[in-house]
């Protein structure tokens, strides 16, 4: 049933395409998974078409034969002879352990043989049941079943083969992971763009707001300057919001106070000391009067008396009594 192009192309590792092609070959099922393959799409579709053709042909033959009933009459089936032969073949009183053959308890029924999943699942079920039953029976016959982990012997597939298989599994796993990650990244990108747009909008909104506020403040200050002359301070209270109104109110009040009050005493003293207003230049230059003036000098301060009377001892430890004769007074 295979196409002639595939006659000589056997390789040790049969590729996926081959595997799938084979599947489509076998039951001549039109809808195998072969459309998963991207590389050889055209080739595959051709194969599929051929398979479909063959299936149709098979059905046609069957129909025509069934109609004429030619084959039915031809086909031989000698039940009795077969039964006898079966009995002859089977040695009597044979221990089970000699053949290790198990019959499954249920009859495998697959509705759609072209459905790979259903088919594999059915076979797996049958085999798993047999394996469990077989283990029990083998152990009951007092024969070892499980291979101990330290039993090494030649295997059906060599280590090299197994390494190849392992590599392929790893590659498959990696490719799946990669594609998944790419998918995630794509999604993130989509979502990220949304976030970015939103942020820009938000930034623009805040900027607009602050600009508005500044404009408002500017207007207000300008209007304040105008109002001061004519109307008074009560006007801008109505303009701003409550918090800002309070503050402006306070400011206006202080200003009014300042106008009414005299400068405080400290200020006056400092003014007299350092001067406030008037000519600054040449104030610190000595003159004849200033040289003759001794009013700022205290003559008693630096007298010897006063110096001697001062305590010359440095502050520090107090000497303990009877210990240091030097300090003993």
């Amino acid at each position: 049933m295979k196409s002639k192009s595939r006659k000589n192309e056997y390789v040790d590792e049969v590729s996926d395409e081959d595997y799938l092609e084979e599947l489509s070959d076998l039951e001549v099922d039109e809808e195998s998974d072969s459309d998963i393959q991207e590389d050889s799409d055209s080739e595959n579709s051709e194969e599929e078409r051929e398979a479909q053709l063959e299936l149709n042909a098979l059905l046609e033959i069957q129909n025509s034969k069934e109609g004429s009933n030619k084959k039915e009459s031809k086909s031989a089936f000698e039940k009795e002879a077969i039964k006898v032969l079966t009995k002859e073949l089977q040695p009597e009183n044979l221990d089970w352990i000699e053949t290790c053959s198990l019959m499954s308890t249920f009859k495998l029924e697959i509705n759609d043989p072209s459905d790979d999943l259903e088919l594999e699942l059915g076979i797996y079920k049958q085999v798993l049941e047999a394996a469990k039953e077989g283990k029990k029976k083998v152990l009951a016959a007092k024969v070892k079943f499980t291979r101990p982990p330290d039993y090494f012997a030649e295997m059906v597939k060599t280590d090299e083969d197994m390494e190849k298989i392992r590599k392929r599994l790893v590659e498959e796993h990696q490719s799946i992971e990669k594609s998944e990650q790419a998918k995630k990244q794509r999604e993130l990108k989509k979502f990220g763009k949304k976030i970015q747009v939103e942020k820009i909008k938000e930034r623009a909104a805040t900027k607009r707001e602050t600009l508005n506020k500044i404009d408002l403040l500017k207007k207000r200050s300008r209007s304040n300057a105008d109002m001061d002359m004519s109307m008074g301070d009560d006007f801008d209270v109505a303009l701003g919001d409550s918090s800002s109104a309070k503050s402006t109110f306070g400011q206006g009040n202080r200003r009014a106070k300042q106008k009414n009050q005299m400068p405080n005493k400290k200020r006056l003293a400092k003014n007299s000391k350092y001067g406030f207003g008037g000519k600054k230049r040449g104030r610190k230059v000595n003159s004849a009067d200033s040289t003759a003036d001794f009013s700022g000098v205290n003559g008693n301060k630096k007298s010897d008396e006063s110096r001697s009377s001062r305590n010359t001892k440095r502050p520090g430890k107090k000497p303990r009594l009877g210990k240091s004769p030097i300090f003993h007074v």
Binding site: M1, D12, E13, V14, D16, Y19, E22, L23, D25, L26, E27, T99, C100, S101, L102, M103, S104, T105, F106, K107, L108, Q126, V127, E129, A130, A131, G134, V138, R147, A153, E154, M155, V156, K157, D161, M162, K164, I165, R168, L169
Partner: peptide
């Protein structure tokens, strides 16, 4: 029909060379 060899990479199992197999027959054989 539909022959797949042991060396195909899709078939990942392995066993001892020459170990005895259990045989499992479907109930339809009966």
């Amino acid at each position: 029909q539909n022959v797949h060899n042991m060396s195909e990479l899709k078939l990942t199992g392995n066993c001892l060379k020459g170990s005895r197999p259990l045989l499992s027959f479907d109930g339809n054989f009966d």
